[in-house]
Design a protein around this nucleic acid. Structure first.
Lengths: 130, 130
DNA sequence: ACCACCGGTCACTTCAAGGAAACTGGCGTC
DNA sequence: GACGCCAGTTTCCTTGAAGTGACCGGTGGT
């Protein structure tokens, strides 16, 4: 799998989104695995700012929940592949819905936020979906 | 508006859901306002465990983002009504999608989690949608 | 002998969300 | 004069997600 290092546009306000699927990175990982398995280091490329610690934590949680499978090959150098399960793939539709909402309404929300007199942020009304 | 105090079943693992819309309570508030405006104290009924502080914070964030409007009537005792905007109402579809996913797949996820050897939780793979 | 690669782990810190409890203030009532 | 209602505010505290940076162990290359 070749993952585009730019697949998560830094300009795209993924972080400002009022949706969240799983942990902070879960939805992005699901998207990374959409077109087939990937290995640990491959995932780190598009997920530019993730630390290995957080990536393992997230992947472990996803594995525990049956969203991905982890396959370690006894080779050298070591190789580990992560792949979406059917359950994990079922999240794709949801992520799609979130993205649709975002492209239709997020600009609205952001514009309103900027205009608002309550503009200082005591709670960003986060949502998550990259 | 009469809000059913039991509309958020304590048995329903809303808290375990791997989705989240806005702050912790945002989606529930949207649901509470689905059928018309409600006032501060009315919202506190179904949202049993919310503190007034958190409720105001959440409502302010939602108002700032254009999801709800706040209307204060100069009466006695004071009355304040919160109502969904069109933008806020647009979230209903999303919440519906999340609920559909949940009723189709959440049991799966939870079962997997329980079965898993990684069962102790270093990251619940949260999602939010009540 | 040294280095890099892979897929992590470990120890530590920061930061913000969320919760608990008490208080406010104008008005009406008993 | 005390009490209660509504819609909050204020202060304090706990928790846990997330980030930083260092380190590890086996192998293959030069």
């Amino acid at each position: 799998m070749q993952l585009d290092p730019e697949m998560f546009d830094p300009v795209c306000p993924s972080g400002a989104l009022p949706f969240r699927i799983g942990d902070k990175w879960t939805a992005m990982i699901v998207l990374c695995l959409e077109n087939g398995p990937a290995r640990f280091t491959e995932l780190r490329v598009p997920l530019k700012r993730i630390s290995p610690k957080v990536l393992t934590e997230t992947l472990k949680a996803m594995e525990r929940d049956g969203l991905v499978t982890r396959t370690a090959f006894d080779e050298n150098p070591p190789r580990v592949e992560y792949e979406l399960t059917a359950l994990g793939r079922s999240l794709l539709a949801l992520i799609g819905a979130v993205r649709e909402w975002s492209s239709a309404h997020l600009a609205d929300l952001l514009a309103h936020r900027e205009r608002s007199p309550l503009s200082h942020r005591p709670g960003e009304s986060r949502l998550a979906a990259p």
